[in-house]
Design a protein around this nucleic acid. Structure first.
Lengths: 212, 212
DNA sequence: AAAAAACCTTGACCTATGTCAAGCAGGTAT
DNA sequence: ATACCTGCTTGACATAGGTCAAGGTTTTTT
């Protein structure tokens, strides 16, 4: 199918290779809130997200989700677990109705691994994920709640238009209460302004940077 | 030099390739506590640790070190920054007198990147680092202080023999006070026993596991 | 439009861990 | 032996952020 060809990761395969790939993979559909895999599951498949969104999170001692990352179409999911044949280190849950390409990993390894194009794509994907993890560490370990919020406003200000505050809070791994308090603090110190419908206007980007 | 050949990452190179590598690299010696690079520096070189130990950490808002990882001889340091040409995301400091192979990254990229052996080694190194980062997240974000200590005792119990408590505390990113309190708590609940010289005996591995 | 559900805000309180300070123990140097 | 580090322990206190609860507001369902 053309679906596969359009995935950036496989764009450079020959027709013949694509045929092979088709044989070891299948397209699966999921609904929002369904789970693709749980933390601790054994990895059998490599997944490529074709459509929809997928979030990956870990669960802490008190059962709360620690949001790690969100996948968009084209993303390669969970190579690590496949490579190392260790249990998935996190849980993956669909956030909307989605489609994934489910690839039999063992077969892929056998046929495709010597292909330098594929290796390169894998390196790229690993590096991207590496960056994500470093960001997670930055976010969770280094930044205070205020700094998280300031960073999010500066980098993703428009998302406030689409997301509810609870959703933003969960992306930042904060409680809605803390987010609310932080926003009012910023508001009262004149850093931002909230008009009617969740539209944040940054009044003082300078100062907001300084919070970091 | 044979030094290079013994680095696992380059063990499969031909003599000719090794010659090339020699031309674009140089061995540097450092003393303990010297800094290899600071968080935020621009990456020019790829480093391979030949001898000694190197620790990598980030610094949080209050200026404390957040320990991320320790490198041992053979380790490839900081590929990410090189690949992506972004500033180093952490600081690297030698913990003992050490030697590194300093490789001109641009030249390496040009000459060696199509080599599937090298690609494979890079993938391996990236995956190892990926795992480390996931562990860091696990340690810093998911685990409580008690759980960190319990995990460390179970996995690295012998290190208590060689390291001072302050050093263990800094590996766990805890204050010595917290570590001390946690150890006495474990001791008084009969989970562990401390004899004269820093030798921890685990009395109840079962229960210790449960703390996790 | 009415009822129900979900969301946001604010206050009071809790908890884990860090900070500061003091005392103590053991090892090393004088 | 004495003095002096360095590291360990313990206590009192501080603080960031979470938890619980209640009231108000918005959105969704009926």
């Amino acid at each position: 199918m053309d679906r596969i060809r359009n995935v950036s990761c496989f764009s450079k395969l020959t027709d013949e290779q694509l045929e092979k790939l088709k044989k070891i993979s299948v397209i699966k559909k999921y609904k929002g809130k369904e789970i693709l895999f749980y933390e601790g599951d054994a990895p059998i498949y490599l997944y490529v997200l074709l459509q929809g969104t997928l979030k990956v999170y870990k669960t802490n001692h008190k059962g709360q989700q620690i949001f790690l990352h969100q996948f968009y179409p084209g993303g390669l999911v969970a190579e690590l677990a496949n490579f190392e044949n260790i249990p998935y280190p996190a849980t993956a849950e669909f956030m909307s109705d989605s489609e994934v390409l489910r690839i039999d990993y063992k077969a892929l390894e056998k046929d495709f691994f010597k292909n330098p194009e594929i290796s390169f794509e894998i390196i790229k994907s690993l590096i991207a994920k590496h960056k994500i993890l470093i960001d997670v560490i930055q976010k969770e370990v280094i930044l205070t709640a205020d700094a998280k919020v300031a960073k999010f406003i500066l980098e993703n200000g428009d998302l406030f238009k689409t997301l509810k505050n609870t959703q933003v809070a969960s992306i930042l791994n904060l409680t809605p209460e803390t987010l609310s308090r932080t926003l009012s603090k910023f508001k009262s110190s004149g850093l931002i302004e909230l008009d009617d419908k969740h539209h944040i206007r940054v009044l003082n980007p300078q100062k907001l940077e300084e919070v970091l």
